[in-house]
Design a protein around this nucleic acid. Structure first.
Length: 287
DNA sequence: ATGAGACCCTGCAAGC
DNA sequence: TGCTTGCAGGGTCTCA
């Protein structure tokens, strides 16, 4: 499930493959993926456009084309790949962009959750999803003061706050668990009751973990593959996510899994001290 | 204003 | 063995 490091890995792959290429034609096989404009306009507008570059904001891919930008969100399982145009088309391929040199950019998405919006680049700031995003976690602007300000009014679990894209952009379920483990903060701790030191550790862990994951091409817990069809290697560095019942690398206690903010949540209750009233504790285990 | 829960969708695992 | 059921997940929406 692509989060910031995976989307960044895809961005790098696509940028190197697509910059300077021309879209000759577009075929949309599943209309739902394209939210705006309508499919006919989408297709007409893209035909003949030259791809300038591929950017990223949070978990969004931004493909710039001659004054227009294709805003693409992979959600759970969206994937891009460049193939020979006459080659076999994989199942669940929903959008095909025919390129020059006999190649094709293809978008696959088994769960059909992904979205594409095409809008003038100058209007990007009014895109609903983009407009609501918080700071980029790897930017200097994301520091303890910034995070503390965002958390001040939030009495809910810190994990829920980290998943909120308006607090900080790009963190999903996997990295939220990894970041909180590295920062030694229990995911159920109230966001506005963190100590200054805990906030600082969360910021530090966020930058460290996301950067390390990008370095290794992202993680690929399920089906994530980058623009070149390579699998990320960061999955082997996950310390808590998907490791319920296994010993913590740091202290040897068993990793527990429960639900926080409606998401499966992994925690070492020895390293991440549960707050009063926490559901995930050494006693209760799962649930 | 905040936060919890439903919803979208499909593949897979678990349970009978 | 074959069926049904439930779960996973990101973002957006509704509702309290």
């Amino acid at each position: 499930m692509p989060e910031l490091p995976e989307v960044e890995t895809v961005r790098r792959g696509l940028d190197s493959l697509l910059a300077g290429r021309v879209i000759l034609d577009v075929h949309v096989h599943l209309a739902r993926i394209v939210r705006q404009p309508d499919v006919d306009t989408f297709t007409t507008l893209l035909r003949g456009k030259r791809i300038e570059r591929v950017r990223r904001r949070g978990k969004y891919l931004l493909i710039d084309l001659d004054g227009w930008t294709l805003v693409s969100h992979l959600r759970m399982e969206g994937r891009y790949g460049v193939f020979a145009a006459d080659g076999e088309v994989a199942p669940h391929t929903h959008v095909r962009f025919r390129l020059d040199r006999g190649e094709e950019l293809r978008y696959r998405d088994v769960r059909q959750f992904g979205t594409m919006d095409l809008l003038p680049t100058v209007e990007l700031d009014v895109h609903r999803g983009l407009a609501a995003l918080g700071v980029e976690p790897l930017a200097d602007a994301f520091d303890e003061t910034e995070l503390e300000g965002k958390l001040r009014s939030r009495s809910g679990a810190i994990k829920g706050a980290l998943l909120d894209q308006s607090v900080v952009a790009g963190i999903g379920n996997i990295y939220a668990d990894e970041i909180l483990f590295a920062a030694k903060v229990h995911p159920e701790r109230a966001a506005n009751r963190l100590t200054r030191n805990q906030t600082r550790e969360i910021v530090r862990a966020t930058k460290l973990i996301l950067a390390a994951s990008i370095e290794q091409g992202g993680s690929s817990v399920k089906s994530y593959v980058d623009g070149f069809g390579e699998q990320g290697q960061f999955q082997f560095a996950l310390r808590v996510y998907g490791r319920d019942g296994l010993p913590c690398d740091y202290c040897g206690s068993l990793i527990r899994k429960g639900r926080v903010a409606g998401r499966g949540t992994h925690v070492c209750v020895a390293c991440q001290t549960p707050p009063r009233g926490a559901r995930i504790t050494s006693r209760t285990g799962s649930e």
